[in-house]
Design a binder for these strands. Structure first.
Lengths: 348, 348
DNA sequence: TTTCGTCCTGCAAGCGCTTACATCACGCTA
DNA sequence: TAGCGTGATGTAAGCGCTTGCAGGACGAAA
């Protein structure tokens, strides 16, 4: 009944280790050693095996290997979306770093939806991700508990809060925005606008918002000094957001945006409304992606080291995977890029 | 000697199917059925099993499952880099579409290096990718032969050439650029510049270049009518490229760029050189990513349906995976976005 | 009561690979 | 010549899961 094996549902022609062994006239153990520890097998044998491997287009079955050695050399990442250049960029360097270590990357995007992310965590773990990269803190604690129980090292990126138990490599969104808002305030602005992403379920957005609030309150300003427009990250929404905010009774003299894409949209809209930035209105961004240098005027924004974040996250995850030492967090520094879209409140 | 099993290298506390079975007082077969075909098991039993699953934080071992069912529900994608928004964007919709089908995405980026891509193909196949997405045609034929022998359905995206054997979902880069170049010519330009990515190993870049050449030759112009600057895709390189091209003896009146990022850089550099675009110099892009609308003047470019490409590629791969029908290619249409960076050659 | 279906559930044989351990051949040394 | 160490190879027991087949329980029909 070996026939069954051949006709079953086996994909035709995918050679297995034992096919190679047969073709080379050696045992499967020897073939396996040729592949994983060539120095243990004699030159001549090795040559025969390699020949057979090529003739049969053999490629090891990963699942079987993972099963046998209990390690998958795979790590997973769940990001909100690759459409946002910051995540694409961070993931790129994350992947490069993993690749150097021979580790493969499994990607999922949650589209900012908690339940989707939830399911993806389980999927990636089931798929054997040795470790996991997540974005931000906002999720049910059960997720982290699950990962802990399963002994899957994991890390939060793009956010950093020393008070949180979950290890992270990121920056303090609130402090970063506070820094920028302080500069804005110092320039004399007293009426602020903020175009932000949805804050519930997104601690980064929330942190940035709170950063602005911190500054306003510290300056003794009333909360009404801040006009908020909540939307989704996109160029078009930046435009719409600006229009909305400026339609208020006593419009702000500065509109701070949750990211650069939103800010680019706002800038464009301002221009089309006939406003001169920064004379009539100041606008700020966040992230310092490429477009911040392309807009006119160029965008004053917060620089975030996305690439380094990805790289460092990879390294931490890799070492956590190797030796389950006490995970520690890492805080990256942000800085302010003063360019041309922010100045003292204008003609007024 | 069961002890050995426990102390071996097994990650502590990762429950297996049989742990669950023991906890629930049933056989592994029943647990397996609970998970994969719940309708086959009685309500009461199912409840017991589910309870045990939760108590133990059980998650199935993917490798083992893959081994048993011979399918991984995983597809791989190898892109040059996620730093380029077009790939990030395409991959995003690719992943979304896969996710709907319960399929997970494995990502690798080749950084435009053939040997790296080569290795990644083998890695992803070994990891059990049921299907593979590749970018462009330029690679050793051996790669496709390997995939064919291994019965891994695969697709080329971002390019389309009906004469090629490898199925693709993409567009004709040469024809697209030809269309744009024809418009440029019609406006009266006779001296062209081209800032392009490295053409060897990159059929998309080569196609775009040839598109320009087609038009010039057809118009009876000498090849010297085209000044070429070859570089790597990036904003900074766009700037440097423009400067280089304009330093020629008889500089072009239009500079066509291989993509929008390059064009954005060129535009900026032109501005800083004191040139007015398009009066003194016309500039065009390719891709129509977001920044094309942000530059000043806004960029005239070729619109490419990146998202649809990703989505469609996913669907094709998924169906190829299910039933190995004869793979067929799909050609997407591009169009020209006339905006403000192109006009008749200026003051002259 | 016997005899069948019908459902559920369990048994056990793999899936392809790694690796501890056994085996064997060979060349030395005593 | 016996004995031993060494290095190359083979043997076979898993890794955790699925699934064809067999068995058992139970109710209905004969």
């Amino acid at each position: 009944m070996t026939r069954k094996r051949d006709t079953h549902r086996r994909r035709a022609g995918n050679a297995t280790l034992s096919d190679v062994a047969a073709a080379a006239g050696v045992s499967t153990a020897t073939v396996s050693r040729c592949l994983n520890a060539p120095q243990l097998v004699q030159q001549a044998t090795r040559a025969r095996v390699e020949d057979a491997v090529n003739r049969l287009s053999y490629a090891p079955n990963f699942g079987a290997r993972a099963l046998a050695v209990r390690q998958t050399d795979t790590v997973g990442a769940i990001v909100p979306t690759l459409d946002n250049a910051i995540f694409a960029r961070g993931l790129q360097s994350f992947q490069e770093e993993l690749g150097k270590a021979g580790v493969t990357l499994l990607v999922a995007s949650s589209l900012y939806k908690a339940d989707l992310e939830n399911a993806q965590v389980r999927t990636l773990v089931a798929r054997g991700a040795d470790a996991l990269l997540l974005i931000g803190y906002d999720r049910e604690p059960a997720v982290h508990e699950f990962l802990n129980r399963r002994n899957v090292p994991h890390l939060v990126a793009w956010a950093h809060d020393p008070d949180r138990a979950v290890p992270s490599v990121g920056f303090d969104n609130r402090a970063a925005m506070r820094g920028l808002a302080a500069r804005v305030l110092a320039l004399g602005h007293r009426r602020f606008g903020l175009i932000t992403a949805q804050r519930i379920g997104n601690d980064r957005a929330r942190g940035r918002w709170l950063g602005v609030l911190d500054v306003l309150r510290e300056a003794g300003l009333d909360d009404s000094a801040l006009t908020i427009h909540e939307t989704t990250y996109s160029y078009e929404n930046g435009r719409a957001g600006l229009r909305k905010i400026l339609s208020a009774a006593d419009p702000p003299t500065v509109v701070m945006c949750g990211n650069d894409v939103l800010a680019a949209g706002a800038l464009q809209e301002a221009r089309e409304m006939g406003l001169s930035v920064p004379r009539d209105l100041s606008i700020t961004g966040f992230d310092d992606i490429e477009i911040a240098k392309i807009t006119h005027p160029r965008l004053t924004t917060v620089r975030v080291p996305h690439r380094e974040m990805g790289r460092r996250a990879a390294r931490m995850l890799l070492s956590l995977r190797a030796e389950p030492e006490e995970p520690c967090s890492y805080r990256l520094d942000t800085s302010i890029r003063m360019r041309d879209s922010l100045s003292a409140p204008g003609a007024s």
